[in-house]
Design a protein around this nucleic acid. Structure first.
Lengths: 100, 100
DNA sequence: CAGAATGATAACATATTAGTTATCATTCTG
DNA sequence: CAGAATGATAACTAATATGTTATCATTCTG
């Protein structure tokens, strides 16, 4: 049985994870990636973003390190000063996902 | 001073609400609208969707009535069987929003 | 009408996020 | 080097979402 320590391990462990779960993970990875990228592109520190968004620095750090799954209002508060928001979109029906 | 009882009142009260806050509200209204519409279009009851998503019926009801702001994982669990997911998108820079 | 299905909600327990405060190691910067 | 800035994290509290179970009024449906 493989040990799961890193987030990379977690992603690799496809046996246990449902497509819904994997979709959630993909979304979070994509989201956090964009979030960090946008923050750094703007030259903002976590503390800067904390002031702009009203979300505290430790909470931002937790999110960036995938230690917490945010609530959507918290997410939107952080995304807004970075120039992003969320949208609801249809799931792309790829060959891989039409099974379950 | 206007009383604020309904969600409609809340939306009308533009004086007190920041653009970030309003964006959050708009998103939630749009989201919940799509969620309800998609559920009904599929002929699913809240209990059906509960079984499909793994989120309990009372939690779905709370969300549909805007009594709770969901966490993103809960949201994705519910959206998935409805054929939707979330995307991160740039904020449209409208004339109304470029002030603050 | 009788019973099933449905949405809403109450009440409480549990889980998780976010706030708060502080600190630490490391990296910038003068 | 000395100090500031930064990201990470610990420890705890407060706030909130979700689970759980049950019930109720209302609407379907036979």
């Amino acid at each position: 049985m493989k040990e799961i320590n890193t987030f990379s391990d977690y992603l690799s462990d496809t046996t246990r994870v449902s497509t819904t779960e994997r979709e959630k993970i993909n979304f979070e990875v994509e989201l956090i990636g964009k979030m960090i990228e946008a923050r750094e592109k703007k030259g903002l520190s976590q503390r800067d973003l904390a002031k702009l968004s009203g979300v505290k620095q430790p909470a931002i750090a937790r999110m960036e390190n995938l230690k917490a799954t945010p609530q959507i209002d918290t997410l939107l508060k952080i995304l807004a000063p970075l120039g992003y928001t969320l949208s609801i979109t249809p799931i792309k029906d790829t060959a891989a996902s039409n099974g379950q």
